[in-house]
Amino acid sequence: MMWLIQLIILIIVVVTALAAITVKDLLGAAILFGAYSFMMCLLWAIMGAVDVAFTEASVGAGISTVLFVAAVFRTSRRTKD
């Protein structure tokens, strides 16, 4: 059962990581990066590294998403390339 949850989370991690670098909308990329961080947080928690999971949840999924959104708000929302 546990390996199934891990497999699903790993697939979501890979999909969100690929989507975050390919999507043209920068706001969407920031949100996808937050989802990626949250899935990584779940992986750390499953592996028993609870402190790392906590840090990933607060820093990766929380603050860095907000900072990315703030930066996108001050620049353009769509990438040029």
């Binding site: 402190d51 999971a53 906590f54 840090t55 607060s58 820093v59 929380g62 603050i63």
Partner: peptide, 12 residues
Amino acid sequence: PGGGFQGGVILG
């Protein structure tokens, strides 16, 4: 689990 880093980030 927790400590200065996580607590500081949540306060911020």
